[in-house]
Amino acid sequence: MKKKIFTSISLTLFLCAGMPLSAEKLTFSAGINASFMPSMGGSLATHSQESYYQSSSGVDGINRRMDGYKTSDIERLTGACFGFDFNILFYDYFLLRTGFNYGRNVCGGKGKTVFYSPAPDDDYFILECEYSYRQYDIPLTAGVCIPFWNDAKISVSCGAAYANALYKNKFESEDTAVPFERKGKFSGWGIPLVVMIQGDYFVNEKIALTTKISYYRGRSRLKKDKSDDDGDTDFATLDFTGYKFNLGVSYYIFLK
């Protein structure tokens, strides 16, 4: 399956690369960018969180408070990403774009909550939770780019990306009759749909400051837990859905 997708993407790139050769004007640009991604990895739901900690919606449903228990909120993950991209502009308005982005969580995903442990405990206990998420993706989009005046461009492009992620979680309680530390590790890939809206402002003839909103929507197939030293086998889906807010710099090469 991976081979087929790789072949398809390579073929598409090859065909697309051939298209603009006959254009009257051709513009290449390459850029680097940094971004942040709220809600990275989505809800981070897994089967064990529902089975053991009464949360069917991952991090969204795991926060609880009770008198006499010292808890702290566990927030969704916020990710920091960096990447680079290549763009080809042809026939004045048409745009092909690819790139590479890498990101990981920088805040959120850590705290303490309360969970119910059935017999023999039959009581509520503090649960320490920790989530982490890393992902990289290679988007390929096509769209249109409209130059406004001499110093600005706005582009809208849509397509898909190859995205790969590694999601880890850890749940720990020392107060139960049998203290435990359960870990989960899931890795996998998916092909999310991608939309990018970008504005370029030229500070000189060849260099532009860029802002971009990228939206990804998609998830992987179900993945099995790769941590096998904790006696628990968990299952999760890696969710690539979310926004990325980018700032960057692009360098343009105009061919006539």
Partner: peptide, 16 residues
Amino acid sequence: GDEISRANQYIADYRE
């Protein structure tokens, strides 16, 4: 998607 993912988790756990 959420409903399907949750069902998939149950199916995989059941099989396991």
